[in-house]
Design a protein around this nucleic acid. Structure first.
Lengths: 151, 151
DNA sequence: CATTGTGTAACTAAAGTGGTTACACACTTC
DNA sequence: GAAGTGTGTAACCACTTTAGTTACACAATG
């Protein structure tokens, strides 16, 4: 694709985990809700686990759940968990035959782009999972895809 | 690649045009400075022209030049000129078998992601080509890759 | 009219994602 | 301990995007 829907899947996943509290959620359930494959979800959840946002219990009755309360997890945390490359790349040049302007511009571009990325991350840092759930509003159903309601 | 170095090329290109003022710059010259192919540069310049930032004169002695003073062109203008997709995509789901949460989450994600992109663009809008040139500092040489100095 | 430079098409190559299948391993539960 | 459940991960395919390159027609200068 080239286009990143990874963050969408990750936020969606984390949102579900937040809704379910300490109830473990299987990758199958999340996949059904997101509309993708369980393996795709597991790859994302793996990122969340690696950065300490989520935890996974294996075996029967297992699944993933958040390690922190929803209001202690920002979207920026989730973004960082994915470990994406920089938004904009500055192509590296050959060492020799380089234009002096070309050489001078590159560090400026780096600075510029990292500033832009910071700005974006700053925005994401201002929203946490609890906010997200609140934004979902009243129409949150009790079950994920009708499969489960609660114990 | 998947990674966007297009913005880097575009900003680099626009920077050179800004440095050269009304002197037309050929795609060959820019390509040498950027370290890429003239065609790649022409594709980028085409975007700049389409959005009114630059103009192109064909034929001998021709090339591209900016239509506005450098301080009237922000990096956000250049970013917009490229016509990139949204930074983060929200995957579209099949219509039927959709989880109610899945359905509720998608518009929230859209809102979230466009907010993030706005934040980034806002940052880019705060920097114009004149700022960029100033950042280059004193070590701006007089020529692009030593080929030309001035008329 | 010759030269120069753009615009564009066409093709190749490389990389990232998503989707899928398959299977070993861990953990729970009985 | 045995069975069942769910994860982790590898392997592979399909698709998309981008960069790079060659080639050539067309426009404009001089």
């Amino acid at each position: 694709m080239g286009s990143n829907s990874r963050l969408a899947v990750a936020v969606h996943t984390a949102g579900i985990l937040a809704l379910r509290g300490r109830q473990p959620v299987t990758s199958d359930m999340v996949a059904t809700s997101v509309g993708t494959n369980p393996v795709v979800v597991r790859r994302i959840i793996g990122c969340l686990v690696k950065s300490g946002i989520a935890e996974v219990r294996k075996g029967s009755g297992g699944g993933a759940f958040l390690t922190r309360p929803a209001n202690a997890i920002t979207i920026a945390d989730i973004y960082a968990a994915l470990g994406e490359d920089e938004l904009f790349q500055v192509p590296s040049l050959g060492k020799e035959h380089e234009c002096p302007i070309g050489r001078a511009v590159r560090p400026i571009l780096h600075q510029l782009f990292s500033g832009a990325e910071e700005a974006m991350i700053g925005y994401l840092a201002g929203i946490n999972l609890e906010d997200l759930i609140k934004m979902l509003g009243e129409d949150i159903p009790d079950g994920i895809c009708g499969e489960i309601s609660d114990d």
